[in-house]
Amino acid sequence: MDTLVEFLVSAAILVGGVFALVGSFGLARLPDFYLRLHGPTKASTLGVGGTIFASLLFFSWQEQALQLQELLIVLFLFITAPVSAHMLAKAAMHRQLRRREDTRGRPWKQ
């Protein structure tokens, strides 16, 4: 395989992995639910995005033809991830989850 393509695929894999890890790290460590909600948006955008880009490049190179199937996963995640985050935020507000004391503003009553 051409060195440049191999380099790009490797770089995309690493970028994806690192961002998935940082997102999950945020989920594990941040102090309240609303803050944790920010972690997965990273994992679903750049995390999966990076690995999908790697796979796209890899198979396009392998078969010498543009392979765009994997883009469907990213497209689907980009449409659905905000919706599930929104639903979970609503659920959290409904249950009146504790938030960090210094949070400015307040959630709405559900």
Partner: peptide
């Protein structure tokens, strides 16, 4: 707009009135 706000990390849209 709400989806865009949630997708860009750092902000999450939580509810619409």
């Amino acid at each position: 707009l709400a989806s865009t706000i949630s997708l860009t990390p750092g902000t999450v849209s939580a509810d619409v009135s």
